[in-house]
């Protein structure tokens, strides 16, 4: 019986992951935006959307990411209601949301779920850059907070993947308040001794960087990911000169003490499994 459900869940995730790969604009093109090398779609897919020549990590969809991380059949989505929330009655926002929902098949810019990695159960949240640049709406904040609270309640490790352009402008101050909400929820998880692993992917900026993305017990990053509070253009305007090569990239952030390790996509599942294993009980002394 359990088996049947697990198989169904696996099939569902595979379908959603397939759609992710079809609708991701970047990963469809054959030329790598970084080195220009062209690879067949099949080769890219086999390499988990990492350029075989230069190692550039293409952004990937949330369901696809979960499908390459989780043990087969372990995926269970938490809360995925399709609400359209327009607190400021912002002109054109509803239409924009509905279009994003139609184009991506996502209901918002984050997917939250439970699942297991190499047998270790965890709560996961994955931001998806295709949905209005992964910006933090009230619903994104609500789902991330739900993931954090679920981890605290069920005493499970929490893994959040960030990919965000920052705040959702059209929700104004209520978008800003999600930074306080998610950070406060992490304070409670912390007090309960819960493990939180934050994985920064390209790009992680703005309000997401200035809240949950930067608060992991362990912070990992994908190679080359842009990670910062202010975006490069804003900084450039402020200081009036061009930015040094590699500024705000994952490697820069690790050098400056804000990232524990840079993990290529094909090593991510093994690294997360190792970390979850290191936080389980064991040993004789």
């Amino acid at each position: 019986m359990n088996d049947i459900f697990a198989r169904r869940r696996q099939k569902l995730l595979a379908m959603k992951a397939f759609r992710d790969r079809q609708t991701h604009p970047d990963a469809l093109g054959e030329a790598c935006p970084h080195c220009g090398a062209s690879s067949s779609r099949k080769a890219l897919s086999a390499a988990l959307y990492v350029c075989p020549r230069c190692g550039h990590h293409f952004p990937i969809g949330a369901y696809y990411r979960l499908s390459i991380l989780l043990d087969p059949g372990s995926f269970r989505e938490l809360g995925n209601r399709s609400a359209v929330f327009d607190p400021l009655q912002f002109p054109g926002y509803r239409k924009k949301l509905e279009t994003a929902q139609r184009m991506t098949g996502l209901s918002e810019a984050v997917v939250i779920a439970t699942g297991s990695i190499d047998g270790h159960k965890a709560v996961l949240g994955v931001l998806d850059n295709r949905f209005l640049m992964g910006s933090m709406s009230a619903e994104v904040g609500e789902r991330v907070t739900t993931a954090i609270e679920t981890a605290a309640r069920q005493k499970l490790p929490l893994i959040l993947f960030s990919a965000s352009g920052g705040a959702r402008m059209q929700e104004g101050i209520l978008s800003l308040m999600q930074m306080a909400k998610t950070s406060a929820a992490l304070a409670r998880l912390d007090e309960k001794g819960g493990l939180y692993i934050s994985v920064l992917t390209d790009p992680t900026t703005g309000g997401v960087t200035a809240s949950f993305a930067s608060l992991g017990d362990i912070i990992l990053a994908e190679p080359g990911a842009l990670i910062g509070f202010a975006g490069p253009r804003v900084i450039q305007q402020t200081i009036g000169q061009s930015l040094p090569e590699g500024f705000q990239r994952a490697e820069f952030q690790m050098e400056h003490g804000f990232v524990d390790a840079i993990v290529p996509r094909d090593r991510l599942r093994a690294t997360l499994a190792q970390l979850l294993e290191l936080h389980s009980k064991g040993g004789r002394i």
């Binding site: 930074m179 306080a180 950070s183 406060a184 960087t209 200035a210 809240s211 949950f212 993305a213 930067s214 608060l215 910062g228 509070f229 202010a230 900084i235 500024f247 705000q248 820069f252 400056h256 003490g257 804000f258």
Partner: peptide
Amino acid sequence: EARGQGEAIARNL
């Protein structure tokens, strides 16, 4: 940015 503006704000929250 180099000294972690995002981290400093997040930690305060």
